[in-house]
């Protein structure tokens, strides 16, 4: 295999890895770190430009100094910490045991095919999280039940909307509206001791926590542009949530 071919394959693999990291919710520093680790295991140097929508990568062979540049569009975002964890582990092993290109590719194919938790488990777990939130904000067990049901239906709407490829912000709005509508019924009939807590917590499963925290760490790492993009994205999501809550509260005249 000549150097050009090797560089081309390396660039493709590194781009696949970094775009998977990006959509899984890694911050910019972690992507650059993984790129550097894999590249140094393959006797190359990688220079990258990571943006929200596309990746630009140049790999340089250390011996011949030949270069190869390629651009890749980033696919749909879906947070997945298992992937980040597996790629991080693979990058350490690659560095320690001097993995070859084919070995890294094999490992990456295994990581790509890993499944997520089944939808119903996610639904139940997140609904329990919603109930837990309600307890944290001083709701009693009736309020927690309301929060559980609202979160369950809101998340179900979100999952269905994502399955039908509806625009993300509209999906968030629909989910937020559905969840707060159900919780508003609890406030309207004054169920439990603290029905407002159920309404306030019913939409919290939509909060873009990962985007906002990554935006902040990007700012601290001097990746200002990426941080701004993540922040703007997170703010848009928060606005969609607020709009859904607002419409539901307006319908029930909860002043």
């Amino acid at each position: 295999m000549n150097v050009k071919d090797k560089l081309k394959q390396t660039a493709d693999l590194l781009l696949d890895i970094s775009s998977l990291l990006m959509v899984s919710g890694a911050n910019t520093n972690r992507i650059n770190l993984s790129l550097t680790r894999f590249a140094s295991a393959l006797n190359c140097q990688a220079y990258s430009m990571v943006t929200h929508m596309s990746l630009v990568l140049t790999v340089t062979d250390i011996e011949t100094e030949e270069t190869f540049t390629r651009v890749k569009k980033i696919p749909k975002y879906q947070i997945n910490f298992s992937t980040i964890s597996a790629i991080s582990k693979a990058s350490w092993s690659a560095l320690r045991d001097d993995w070859t290109l084919t070995r890294i590719k094999e490992e990456f194919d295994v990581i790509k095919t890993r499944t997520r938790y089944p939808k119903y488990i996610v639904l139940i777990a997140v609904s329990f999280a919603g109930a837990g939130f309600c307890n944290i904000f001083e709701g009693d067990y009736i309020n927690m039940l309301v929060a559980f049901i609202s979160t369950l239906s809101g998340l179900f709407i979100l999952q269905t909307a994502h399955g039908r490829k509806i625009n993300g912000h509209i999906a968030t709005f629909l989910a937020s509206f559905c969840a707060s509508f159900l919780a508003s019924i609890g406030v309207f009939y004054n169920l439990g001791e603290h029905p407002q807590a159920a309404l306030a917590t019913s939409v919290l499963f939509l909060v873009p926590g990962v985007a906002l925290i990554n935006s902040f760490t990007d700012f601290l790492d001097n990746n200002i542009l990426n941080g701004m993009v993540r922040f703007a994205n997170g703010t848009m999501t928060v606005l969609s949530i607020a709009l859904g809550l607002f419409v539901a509260m307006l319908l029930f005249q909860l002043n």
């Binding site: 488990i121 996610v122 997140v126 999280a129 919603g130 837990g132 944290i136 926590g209």
Partner: peptide, 17 residues
């Protein structure tokens, strides 16, 4: 304990190992 449960719920949403 409910904080812990909420943390796990979100962890599963983020697909933690």
């Amino acid at each position: 304990i409910w904080s812990g449960i909420a943390a796990v719920g979100f962890g599963i949403l983020f697909n933690i190992p």
